[in-house]
Amino acid sequence: CETCDRYISGRVLEAGGKHYHPTCARCVRCHQMFTEGEEMYLTGSEVWHPICKQAAR
């Protein structure tokens, strides 16, 4: 997992080739988790909900 550096077994979320436990992938702006299939916007090592990234501009 990109966030906690632990092995992932079971469900995995992926953004930009990086992998996360579903509970570790959180938006840097709103701190909410991502749901399965939800779009993730990756900037460097930061993961955003698209609407949060747009609002931060």
Results as ranks from 00 to 15, higher is better:
residue 45 S to L: 07
residue 31 H to F: 07
residue 57 R to V: 08
residue 26 R to G: 03
residue 15 A to M: 15
residue 12 V to F: 06
residue 51 I to Y: 08
residue 27 C to E: 01
residue 43 T to V: 11
residue 55 A to S: 09
residue 31 H to W: 08
residue 40 M to I: 15
residue 42 L to N: 14
residue 43 T to H: 11
residue 34 F to G: 06
residue 56 A to I: 08
residue 5 D to V: 06
residue 42 L to P: 09
residue 36 E to V: 07
residue 1 C to G: 02
residue 12 V to T: 13
residue 32 Q to E: 12
residue 44 G to I: 04
residue 57 R to S: 03
residue 52 C to Q: 01
residue 43 T to C: 06
residue 34 F to P: 12
residue 22 P to K: 08
residue 32 Q to I: 10
residue 29 R to H: 11
residue 30 C to D: 02
residue 14 E to I: 12
residue 24 C to F: 00
residue 35 T to H: 05
residue 38 E to L: 01
residue 19 H to I: 07
residue 44 G to M: 13
residue 54 Q to E: 15
residue 48 W to N: 10
residue 6 R to Q: 12
residue 27 C to V: 02
residue 53 K to W: 03
residue 5 D to R: 12
residue 10 G to L: 00
residue 4 C to H: 00
residue 50 P to H: 08
residue 16 G to S: 09
residue 44 G to Q: 08
residue 8 I to C: 02
residue 23 T to S: 09
residue 53 K to T: 04
residue 19 H to P: 13
residue 37 G to A: 10
residue 32 Q to Y: 03
residue 35 T to F: 06
residue 45 S to V: 07
residue 34 F to A: 08
residue 17 G to Q: 04
residue 26 R to C: 10
residue 9 S to Q: 12
residue 53 K to G: 09
residue 13 L to F: 09
residue 29 R to I: 15
residue 5 D to E: 07
residue 9 S to Y: 07
residue 13 L to R: 06
residue 37 G to E: 12
residue 9 S to R: 08
residue 48 W to V: 14
residue 29 R to S: 14
residue 36 E to K: 05
residue 54 Q to Y: 02
residue 31 H to A: 10
residue 5 D to S: 12
residue 10 G to E: 07
residue 55 A to H: 14
residue 49 H to Q: 01
residue 30 C to N: 02
residue 53 K to F: 08
residue 14 E to Q: 09
residue 10 G to V: 02
residue 16 G to C: 09
residue 38 E to F: 00
residue 36 E to H: 04
residue 12 V to C: 08
residue 57 R to G: 11
residue 28 V to K: 10
residue 31 H to L: 10
residue 22 P to A: 09
residue 14 E to K: 05
residue 46 E to Y: 04
residue 49 H to E: 03
residue 30 C to T: 06
residue 35 T to D: 07
residue 51 I to H: 14
residue 3 T to F: 15
residue 51 I to F: 07
residue 45 S to I: 07
residue 46 E to N: 12
residue 32 Q to W: 04
residue 46 E to G: 10
residue 11 R to E: 14
residue 49 H to W: 00
residue 48 W to P: 06
residue 41 Y to L: 12
residue 43 T to Q: 09
residue 48 W to D: 04
residue 16 G to D: 06
residue 31 H to T: 11
residue 18 K to S: 03
residue 7 Y to R: 11
residue 16 G to T: 01
residue 54 Q to F: 14
residue 44 G to F: 04
residue 52 C to S: 01
residue 44 G to V: 04
residue 55 A to T: 11
residue 6 R to G: 03
residue 6 R to I: 04
residue 35 T to W: 02
residue 46 E to C: 08
residue 40 M to H: 14
residue 56 A to C: 09
residue 40 M to Y: 15
residue 26 R to A: 12
residue 3 T to P: 00
residue 20 Y to A: 04
residue 47 V to K: 06
residue 17 G to H: 03
residue 24 C to S: 02
residue 13 L to Y: 11
residue 25 A to C: 11
residue 32 Q to N: 15
residue 35 T to G: 11
residue 37 G to D: 15
residue 39 E to P: 14
residue 27 C to R: 00
residue 57 R to H: 08
residue 35 T to Y: 14
residue 44 G to S: 12
residue 48 W to C: 12
residue 9 S to D: 11
residue 5 D to P: 00
residue 38 E to H: 06
residue 43 T to Y: 04
residue 42 L to T: 14
residue 53 K to C: 09
residue 25 A to I: 15
residue 3 T to C: 07
residue 18 K to E: 01
residue 46 E to S: 07
residue 17 G to S: 06
residue 55 A to F: 09
residue 13 L to V: 15
residue 6 R to E: 02
residue 53 K to S: 10
residue 28 V to M: 10
residue 18 K to Q: 06
residue 38 E to I: 03
residue 44 G to L: 05
residue 17 G to W: 01
residue 31 H to V: 03
residue 17 G to T: 03
residue 20 Y to V: 03
residue 30 C to V: 01
residue 40 M to S: 10
residue 6 R to D: 04
residue 33 M to D: 07
residue 33 M to G: 14
residue 35 T to L: 09
residue 54 Q to C: 04
residue 11 R to P: 12
residue 29 R to C: 13
residue 7 Y to I: 15
residue 38 E to M: 03
residue 22 P to D: 03
residue 8 I to M: 05
residue 1 C to K: 13
residue 15 A to C: 14
residue 26 R to N: 06
residue 49 H to Y: 01
residue 50 P to L: 11
residue 6 R to Y: 07
residue 18 K to N: 04
residue 55 A to L: 09
residue 34 F to N: 06
residue 4 C to D: 01
residue 47 V to H: 06
residue 18 K to V: 03
residue 27 C to F: 03
residue 45 S to A: 13
residue 34 F to R: 04
residue 49 H to R: 01
residue 20 Y to T: 05
residue 21 H to R: 00
residue 54 Q to H: 04
residue 50 P to D: 12
residue 14 E to P: 06
residue 46 E to L: 06
residue 9 S to V: 08
residue 57 R to D: 13
residue 57 R to P: 02
residue 2 E to F: 14
residue 24 C to E: 03
residue 3 T to V: 04
residue 45 S to P: 04
residue 50 P to W: 04
residue 38 E to P: 03
residue 10 G to A: 02
residue 49 H to C: 04
residue 51 I to G: 14
residue 42 L to Y: 14
residue 15 A to D: 06
residue 30 C to H: 02
residue 25 A to P: 05
residue 31 H to Q: 05
residue 14 E to H: 05
residue 34 F to W: 02
residue 11 R to S: 10
residue 11 R to H: 05
residue 16 G to N: 12
residue 15 A to I: 15
residue 27 C to I: 07
residue 3 T to N: 15
residue 33 M to Y: 15
residue 20 Y to L: 09
residue 2 E to K: 14
residue 17 G to F: 00
residue 16 G to H: 07
residue 42 L to S: 13
residue 43 T to M: 09
residue 53 K to H: 12
residue 10 G to W: 00
residue 51 I to N: 14
residue 43 T to W: 04
residue 33 M to I: 13
residue 34 F to Q: 04
residue 11 R to G: 07
residue 37 G to P: 09
residue 43 T to D: 09
residue 51 I to Q: 12
residue 30 C to E: 03
residue 18 K to T: 01
residue 52 C to P: 01
residue 6 R to W: 01
residue 25 A to L: 11
residue 33 M to F: 14
residue 9 S to F: 15
residue 27 C to N: 02
residue 20 Y to S: 02
residue 5 D to W: 04
residue 38 E to C: 06
residue 32 Q to K: 14
residue 18 K to Y: 00
residue 44 G to R: 10
residue 27 C to S: 02
residue 10 G to Y: 01
residue 28 V to H: 13
residue 48 W to Q: 14
residue 26 R to I: 15
residue 32 Q to H: 06
residue 8 I to D: 06
residue 19 H to G: 02
residue 34 F to E: 03
residue 25 A to K: 15
residue 36 E to D: 14
residue 30 C to I: 02
residue 56 A to V: 11
residue 8 I to K: 03
residue 29 R to F: 05
residue 38 E to N: 11
residue 44 G to N: 08
residue 22 P to V: 09
residue 8 I to Y: 00
residue 16 G to P: 00
residue 2 E to V: 13
residue 13 L to M: 11
residue 9 S to N: 11
residue 32 Q to V: 10
residue 39 E to Q: 09
residue 25 A to W: 08
residue 39 E to N: 08
residue 9 S to C: 04
residue 5 D to N: 14
residue 49 H to N: 01
residue 21 H to K: 00
residue 52 C to D: 03
residue 51 I to A: 13
residue 54 Q to I: 10
residue 36 E to Q: 05
residue 48 W to R: 14
residue 46 E to I: 04
residue 32 Q to F: 03
residue 15 A to F: 15
residue 38 E to S: 07
residue 31 H to N: 07
residue 16 G to W: 03
residue 27 C to G: 03
residue 57 R to A: 15
residue 17 G to A: 04
residue 52 C to R: 01
residue 52 C to A: 00
residue 52 C to Y: 01
residue 55 A to I: 15
residue 46 E to H: 06
residue 36 E to F: 06
residue 17 G to C: 03
residue 47 V to L: 12
residue 38 E to D: 07
residue 57 R to M: 15
residue 16 G to L: 02
residue 12 V to Y: 09
residue 57 R to L: 09
residue 11 R to W: 01
residue 28 V to E: 07
residue 44 G to T: 08
residue 39 E to W: 00
residue 56 A to T: 06
residue 6 R to L: 05
residue 2 E to R: 05
residue 43 T to P: 04
residue 26 R to L: 08
residue 36 E to M: 05
residue 3 T to S: 09
residue 42 L to E: 15
residue 56 A to N: 13
residue 29 R to K: 12
residue 46 E to D: 07
residue 41 Y to C: 14
residue 16 G to Y: 05
residue 4 C to Q: 00
residue 19 H to E: 03
residue 45 S to Q: 13
residue 47 V to R: 07
residue 40 M to A: 08
residue 37 G to M: 05
residue 15 A to S: 14
residue 19 H to S: 12
residue 9 S to I: 07
residue 21 H to S: 00
residue 38 E to G: 12
residue 3 T to E: 09
residue 7 Y to K: 12
residue 50 P to Q: 12
residue 12 V to Q: 09
residue 22 P to M: 08
residue 10 G to M: 02
residue 51 I to T: 12
residue 36 E to W: 03
residue 13 L to Q: 04
residue 44 G to K: 09
residue 43 T to E: 12
residue 44 G to W: 04
residue 4 C to P: 00
residue 2 E to D: 15
